[in-house]
Amino acid sequence: MASLIDLANPTRFMRLSRLLLPWMAGLAALLFLIGFYLAWFVAPADYQQGETIRIMFVHVPAAWLAMMLYTMMALSALGTLVWRHPLADVAQKAAAPIGACFALICLLTGAFWGKPMWGTYWVWDARLTSVLVLLLIYLGIIALWRTLDDPGRAGRAVAILTLVGFVNVPIIKFSVDWWNTLHQPASVFRTGGPTIHPSMLWPLLILAIAFTLLALSLHLVAMRAEIMRRRVRTLTILEAERLDRLALAGAAA
């Protein structure tokens, strides 16, 4: 049975990910079809929020994924700093742009939902502000990756920043309990069970799985690209050294 250490081998990862990707992407596509059909044609309009409840089906999965991808990055950061896992900083680098996109989607769809329901696109309350901070941390991490040329050094610097930034994730989750916010408290993952009617809960959960599979598929493709980028970098250096040696040998002859 393949252990995690076996999976850490980039060659094995490339082979396994190539096998997994079509299945994950195909399942995501199927779940998107089912989820959006239920969300748009079966789920009723909300008795208070009317048709704007349709925004929930993309806003909530985006919020969950923005936090989940950051948590994955924090675990990868531990892998980089503690275990020097060969794929840890590759996983971390590949996840950052995907997490940033979901944080942006969460903020934009939240603003489009907030205007008709709250009367404003934005308020500086704890939940909204902490998600904005998450987006800024993602952008800072992406910028730091681009600042340092050496992937090893960049990986360690980014890992430290990622772990420091992780303090924001529980703040996002519990902000609606700790402070008096305009944003509503949790209505799916809460003690006492979800408060959403099953006709809305099912499409939400199906779409959440579909978005998660899409995010994980994109993450695998981005990791494959990053592994190849590092191989290209190494081979380019080797080729330059070989050409240098040939030039020196030619000059000496």
Binding site: G50, E51, R54, I55, H59
Partner: peptide, 10 residues
């Protein structure tokens, strides 16, 4: 409904 623009924008 009246908030179609917000839903479609999302």
């Amino acid at each position: 409904g009246p908030h179609a623009g917000f839903i479609l924008a999302s």
